[in-house]
Computed example of a mutant assay.
Amino acid sequence: MPLTPLDIHNKEFKRSFRGYDEDEVNEFLDQVIKDYESIIRENKDLHNQIAALQERLDHFTNIEESLSKTIIVAQEAADEVKGNSKKEAQLIIREAEKNADRIINEALVKSGKVSLEIEELKKQASIYRTRFRTLLETQLELLNTDSWDSLEGRPAAETSQSL
């Protein structure tokens, strides 16, 4: 068990015939007691400081661990979001490609139909034009015939001059 200042203060030495000067020994013991008490107080203060610093160190160590865990969780979440985003982007691209192919195919089909319709309309226009020309030529022939003049009651010679 370590010595205490009280142990030093209460220590009594045996007296002998040729011993040390009692006052000098007591003064020295008083000085030792003061110094020893000072060292004990300083030691206690240092222990308290160490305990406080250890407590702060533990606190900061806990914060560091929490931050490390948080960073790891955040990194994992970021990786997961990144992976999900890539998958979603690929799905969107695939869907867009499908839609583009569908639109192109529909446009090609419509283009083919329109081309067929144009050709059909050209044929019909040609047929109509031919029929119309034939009709007009027939009508002109009718107008130029002598029978028309006879219907009006005019001689054929007058009709040719008026035209």
Rank of each mutant, 00 (worst) to 15 (best):
K44Q: 10
I33H: 01
V32W: 01
I40G: 00
R15V: 10
R18Y: 09
Y20S: 08
L46K: 09
F13M: 07
I33V: 14
E12N: 06
L29W: 01
K44R: 11
F13G: 05
D35Q: 12
Y20T: 07
L46T: 03
I39Y: 14
Q31M: 13
S38M: 10
K14M: 13
K34Q: 14
V25G: 00
K44N: 09
Y36E: 01
S38G: 14
G19K: 01
L29C: 06
I39M: 14
D45G: 10
N26Q: 15
V32Q: 00
G19E: 05
S38H: 13
E42M: 08
D35E: 14
Y36L: 02
S16H: 11
F13L: 13
Y36C: 00
E22V: 04
L46I: 05
Y20E: 11
E12V: 05
D23A: 05
D21H: 05
H47Q: 15
N43E: 11
V32S: 03
F13D: 07
R41V: 10
N43D: 10
L29R: 02
K44E: 03
N43L: 13
E24I: 05
F28S: 12
F28C: 08
E37W: 00
E12H: 07
L29M: 07
R18K: 12
N26T: 13
R15S: 12
Y20W: 12
F17Y: 15
I33A: 01
Y36K: 01
L46D: 02
F13A: 06
D21R: 04
I39F: 11
E37T: 01
V32A: 03
F28N: 07
K14G: 06
F17Q: 07
K44D: 02
K14W: 08
K44L: 07
S16A: 10
S38C: 15
D23Q: 06
N26Y: 08
D23K: 02
Y36Q: 01
D30L: 05
V32C: 04
H47G: 09
E37L: 03
D45F: 09
E42A: 11
F17N: 06
I39W: 12
F28A: 10
S16N: 10
D23W: 04
I33G: 00
D45M: 13
E12F: 07
F28W: 14
I40A: 01
R15L: 09
V25Q: 02
D23P: 00
E24Q: 11
L29I: 05
D45W: 11
F28R: 10
Q31T: 12
L46Y: 09
I39Q: 15
E37S: 05
K34H: 12
N43Y: 11
V32L: 07
L46M: 07
D45C: 09
E22N: 04
R15T: 10
R18P: 04
L46W: 05
L46V: 05
E12R: 05
N26H: 10
Q31P: 04
D35L: 14
I39H: 15
D21K: 04
E22Q: 09
D30R: 04
D45R: 13
E24N: 08
I33M: 05
I40N: 00
D35I: 14
E27N: 08
R15C: 09
S16V: 13
L29G: 01
E37Q: 06
F28M: 11
I33F: 03
G19N: 04
D45L: 15
N43C: 12
I39V: 15
D30P: 00
F13Q: 06
